[in-house]
């Protein structure tokens, strides 16, 4: 439990750090950190109940993507301004490094194993984001069918 808490706290602070490195506008920082907290929490919760790497990352990225799409519509900015910080705690950086480090050392078995994990995690994140934006697009097009509800839109 306490290791989960450490992961949550460091995940959010890491999101904060990377958001700054990605030159996010300072006024978006609070929401970016909230998004990082959200994806990190969802990942830790789902990871507790489901084995494997794909489903937890998918769920976490999906929640992060939906959160980002909502923020993006509210503030009228590109969704990736929020998606990028949101998925930072999930990004398989260490895995990618281990894959290549095994490959360089000639440990083919380890390279394949880590490589498959990296690919699975990245696929889960990407699928989560894609499904999130797909759902948003569907929702927007359904809303547009009802006429003149937001006709005063600037």
């Amino acid at each position: 439990m306490s290791s989960d808490l450490i992961m949550l706290i460091t995940g959010v602070l890491g999101t904060l750090g990377f958001s700054i490195l990605f030159y996010i506008h300072p006024r978006r920082l609070p929401l970016a950190c909230l998004g990082g907290l959200l994806t990190c929490a969802v990942y830790l919760i789902v990871n507790r109940f489901v084995d494997g790497d794909f489903i937890p990352n998918l769920c976490a990225a999906l929640v992060g993507a939906l959160f980002s799409e909502i923020c993006a519509r509210v503030f009228r900015v590109p969704a990736s301004v929020f998606t990028t910080p949101c998925i930072i705690p999930l990004v398989p950086g260490g895995m990618l490094y281990r894959t290549m480090s095994c490959a360089v050392q000639g440990d083919l078995h380890g390279a394949v194993q880590y490589g498959m994990t990296t690919l699975t995690v990245a696929l889960g994140i990407a699928a989560g984001i894609a499904v999130g934006s797909l759902l948003t697009m569907l929702w927007v097009s359904v809303c547009k069918k009802q006429p003149s509800r937001r006709s005063g839109d600037p």
Partner: peptide
């Protein structure tokens, strides 16, 4: 930001 990110 860099210090925070890598340390965390």
């Amino acid at each position: 930001g860099g210090v925070l990110a890598t340390g965390c």
